[in-house]
Amino acid sequence: MTITLDGAVAVTDPADETSPTDVAVAEQETAQAPPSSGPESGVADTASSGIELVAGYSGTPQPAGASLEELLARDVPDAAEATFGSAAEGQPSLESVIGVDDRIRITTTNVYPWRVHASLLIQLADGSYASGTGFFIGPRTVITAGHCVFVQWSGPRRGWVRSVTVMPGRNGSVLPYGSVTVSGSGIRSVVGWTQNGNSNWDVGALILPTELGSRTGWLGFGYYSDATLLASTANLAGYPGDKPSGTLWYHSRRLLSVSAGRIHYQVDTFGGQSGSAVYRLVDGHRYAFGIHTNGAAPGIPVNSGVRITKPIFDRMKAWKG
C-alpha cells in the first residue's frame, strides 16, 4: 500500500507491523546487494585492514579494552567537546583543541568510492534549510536518514521536507557531477519512521529522476550477524558542518556494539553527517550495514545509526529497483 502525505510517499510493507524487538537478525543470516564502481575511471585502492587507503590516514586505534559498557562508565567527551574543549557555561570556547581530530579530508571526490557520497541541501517544510549526507545504492537511488526527509519534531517543520538537492562527490564549491533536486514522490521513507518516529527505522531514500548513479557508482549493502558486525571496522564518510562548506571527510573505527535495530561506534561525526553510510570492506568491496543518524548524547557517549536489518535491506532493494 502506498500512502501519499503532503505529496511525498511512505511505503507500507510487512516490516511496518514489526516492533523493534522483533527485528533481531538471526545469527549467521546474511545477504548482500552488490556495489558498482560505475563506468567512469578512477577507483581508489583499499587497505587490507578493512579501512580505506587514504594518504596520511592510518586508521584510529580503538581505545584499549574499550567496550560500550566501559565507555558509558568513563564519561567520554563527545566529538565537539574534544575539538573545542569544555566551554564554560554559556561561553564560547574556540581556541583550545583537546585530543586529536584525526578525521581526514577527501579531496579526490571524483574517484570511487568517494563519488558515491552526496552532500544534501534540504529545504524543510517551513522553507528553512539544513544539510545532510546521502549515498548511492543504485543508478537512481540515494539512501539517507529518515530525519533528512521527514522531520519528526512538532511545529511548522514537522513532516515531509519540500525538496532535497543531491550533490554527489561535492568538494567545496566544486560539483563534479552537478546536482539533482528531488521533491514530491521522489522522497521516500517507511512508516516506522514517518508514523511511529522509531529510531530503528530512521531511514529515507531519494529516487532521482536521472541515472546519475550510473556515473558515480554505488555502495553495496547488506545485513549481517552480530558477530560479523562486531568484527568489522566501521567506515564513514560524510559532509560535517564543522569543516569548510561542502567538504568530504572520512574516519573509521571498529564497531562498539549492536542491538536489534541500532549500531554504535566511535567514528567521529558532526552535524551534517546524518545519512552517511556506515560500511565495511569485504575483499576490497564496500557494503553499507548502517546509516548514521545520531551524535553522542548524555549517558550515550558514542555515535550511532540505524542497523540495516532484513526488513530495511528488503526495502532498500525495492527502492533500488
Binding site: 567537546e81 534549510y129 544539510s131 552535524g271 548524547a297 548524555p298
Partner: peptide
C-alpha cells in the same frame, strides 16, 4: 549544530 542536548538529537546541520 547541536553539540550536546539532554537527549539524542539528529546529526543534522541547520542553516
Amino acid at each position: 549544530m547541536v553539540e550536546s542536548a539532554p537527549g539524542p538529537m539528529p546529526d543534522i546541520a541547520l542553516l
